[in-house]
């Protein structure tokens, strides 16, 4: 099978390799074969190989995917495979994208819990069946792979846009009864760089390997910021 792999930084080019087909072969297996047997200078990122860590996402035949759980059979139409780094992010080298802006935006969206209790207090009791907890559960399994970010057209148009993953994370915290930073978070996720820029095209939801719906989370944020109080006030 002929495999074209991106080499170099943003000004690089595709290089062709001949890789033997194996049963149940994943795209990550293909990349690993190239690095171990054909060209040890190929750079790529992976860790768990089982769809948990979110580090191996790449552009496979033009579509962002988690490569460790993507079988060659499913994506290599006509035996052709073209592997590139994730879109919408700077390229470090070969298949490695610079994820800094992706994760910096999680911080900008106030994606960290603002605690309201100390270790001296009792545990918060959260009913798993409560509507808020169910909303949080729907978005909580994000592995931070960046596939949604690479698939999002609004990210492409507007470099300030926080993106689906960061907004999805914010929505899980908006529904977290233990969190005390809601007003600052809602201000951080509102407006042109935030949830209100989403065009509801649902590329994030279409491509999410965990089958989450960041679109749904973003819609929730739009409702939550419907009447945004002035900064500093409790919503």
């Amino acid at each position: 099978m002929e495999v074209k792999v991106w080499r170099g930084d943003a000004t690089g080019r595709f290089e062709s390799f001949e890789v033997p087909r194996q049963p149940s072969q994943t795209v990550l297996d293909v990349v690993t074969h190239i690095q171990r047997h054909l060209d040890p200078t190929l750079s790529y990122r992976f860790a768990c190989r089982v769809g948990m860590c979110g580090s191996c996402a790449m552009t496979v035949n033009g579509t962002p995917r988690w490569t460790c759980r993507t079988h060659v059979d499913k994506v290599a139409a006509a035996g052709r495979l073209e592997i590139a780094p994730l879109a919408n992010l700077p390229v470090v080298k070969d298949l490695v994208a610079d994820m800094r802006e992706f994760f910096d935006k999680w911080a900008r969206a106030k994606g960290q819990l603002t605690p309201t209790r100390t270790r001296a207090d009792e545990f918060a009791v959260v009913d798993p069946g409560s509507p808020a907890r169910r909303e949080a559960d729907a978005g909580i399994e994000c592995i931070g792979c960046g596939v949604c970010y690479a698939a999002c057209d609004v990210v492409k148009w507007n470099r300030d846009y926080l993106g689906p993953a960061a907004l999805n994370r914010a929505w899980t915290l908006v529904n977290d009864a233990r969190d005390g930073g809601q007003s600052a978070r809602l201000h951080a996720v509102a407006g042109d760089a935030g949830c209100h820029s989403c065009h509801t095209m649902m590329s994030c939801t279409e491509h999410c390997p965990k089958h989450l719906s960041p679109t749904r989370s973003i819609a929730g944020l739009k409702r939550a910021t419907w009447s945004l109080p002035p900064e500093g006030e409790k919503p």
């Binding site: 201000h187 509102a190 407006g191 209100h196 910021t225 009447s227």
Partner: peptide
């Protein structure tokens, strides 16, 4: 322009 104003434009 504040996020609050942008949110109001959306509304």
């Amino acid at each position: 322009m504040s996020a609050r104003f942008q949110a109001r434009l959306w509304v």
